[in-house]
Design a protein around this nucleic acid. Structure first.
Lengths: 264, 264
DNA sequence: CGCCGCATTGACGTTCGTCAAGTCTAGTGG
DNA sequence: CCACTAGACTTGACGAACGTCAATGCGGCG
């Protein structure tokens, strides 16, 4: 049933979206990447900048860093220096309680920003782990603050990014606080596929980069419950699941699970 | 058992903390309030400002607004214009899902900032409801942005406030995602009493400003479960509860519930 | 080819939600 | 001042949803 999966862009780990922004600098033979010609720009940078401002924006990115699958971009307790814009790859962020439980607080993909947790105490309070080989733009926070004093659009953009994260977490709190297992998983799938679609991937097919256990941690469920709920969706003909490959057969069915129509 | 409650400062609704910052302006007969002499300043404004900067900081507060108990400071869908610093009173913020469920996302008290959710879409995405008569400082966001371009400490402060909110929500996600009822309520009480203590109230006694249902919504529990869990704590001699008056007998007992020591 | 981590499935137990009855308290109005 | 009422809270009995434990299957990788 997934025989043609390879012919469709299903969130491949070798993400081809960004090649256009790689410009070979012949004088140094290093790859020059500039926000100004990165095609993720509309995701992680403000719109409507003047050419001069665009030039300056390039300065926020000090360097790029490759993160191998399974390793951390930063850990709880580490000194905070920079925010990171994800260029390729997929991350999870997780917090740990003192007695060892841990909780996945989010999954991040290309164009999204991680590291905001570190600003308050100048130390990170969660771990960011790459779920597949990844590459990030390192944006020293001092530099962001400097530039956003001068470029109003950047200042506003930084504020919006932080506010967006706050609103996202409100949504997760609603999910964790008031939804049942099926609703949680349905909301999760819809959210993932919507974000992937915004990046040019299929609306109906996705490859999960995380384990059942990580999904469960994020959704406040045990891995067995996640697995059973997937099976239930398959029985109901709403999705097809083969390991981490998911095809959504009935998007409205999923929506209906998240937001059951009240008829009384 | 609560016979002496009135002799102790137990989060009285007529909060006397702020009178020192009220300066009668004789020329206009209006009450002049300035951040520079507000004793909540250390909670909601940056430290270490020069006198000149302090003067300018006063400009962020455009006006003050009184909110009657049970009414809203802002609602989901309303245009976002300002952040609000709470001077007196107690708020809850809550989000609603399309099918009518709602979820309390936080409780806010004097010195805390509400409204950050509105920045992203320039509209609020949650309701802020006063749980007792309250007063807030209205801080137009445009003015905050303007000033924070010029006063680095203010810029940093705004970033920290937003980051703090993100980190706080991480903690709530951990609570909702992995704790059992007793752990949730214990964590909730410890958090509340700690914040009240930072404002000069007792470490061991508090008056809840919210109903069991609101506590339950925040903690992802039903009101009956909240009630039962309170009763359990009373049986165990950890707290005394009389309606909304709570006295914490055994703080370490509560801590132990939140973070059970693993001995294996 | 065999191993190991991940996923699935079943049986059973616990926790919490649901429903219902009853109590307490603050506030209202006579 | 007291009686009344509505809302908030408590408590019990029962059931559903999810967690726990355990056995088994599957697929990728060395």
């Amino acid at each position: 049933m997934f025989s043609n999966a390879k012919t469709v862009a299903v969130a491949p780990s070798t993400n081809t979206m960004n090649t256009a922004s790689n410009v070979i600098d012949m004088s140094t033979h290093t790859i020059k990447v500039a926000c100004s010609n990165c095609n993720l720009r509309e995701l992680c940078m403000p719109l409507g900048l003047s050419p001069a401002e665009l030039d300056r924006i390039d300065d926020v990115v000090a360097s790029r860093r490759k993160i191998k699958r399974g390793t951390t971009l930063f850990r709880n307790g580490e000194k905070f220096t920079s925010l990171y814009a994800i260029r390729t790859g997929f991350f999870k962020t997780c917090v740990a309680s003192e007695d060892g439980r841990d909780q996945v607080t989010g999954f991040q993909m290309a164009g999204e920003i991680v590291g905001l947790d570190g600003i308050v105490h100048e130390h990170h309070t969660c771990d960011a782990v790459a779920l597949e080989d990844a590459e990030v733009c390192v944006m020293p926070f001092e530099r962001i603050e400097e530039l956003s004093r001068e470029i109003n659009a950047l200042q506003r953009h930084v504020h919006k990014i932080m506010s967006r994260e706050i609103v996202r977490e409100h949504g997760v709190m609603l999910l964790l606080g008031s939804m049942r297992a099926e609703e949680r998983l349905a909301a999760f799938l819809l959210n993932l596929v919507q974000r992937l679609h915004a990046r040019g991937f299929s609306q109906h097919e996705l490859v999960l980069r995380m384990t059942r256990e990580e999904i469960g941690s994020y959704l406040g469920l045990k891995l067995e419950t996640v697995s059973r709920t997937f099976s239930k969706f398959v029985e109901d003909g709403i999705v097809e699941v083969k390991q981490r490959h998911v095809r959504i057969i009935n998007t409205d069915g999923l929506r209906e699970i998240v937001n059951p129509k009240v008829c009384d």
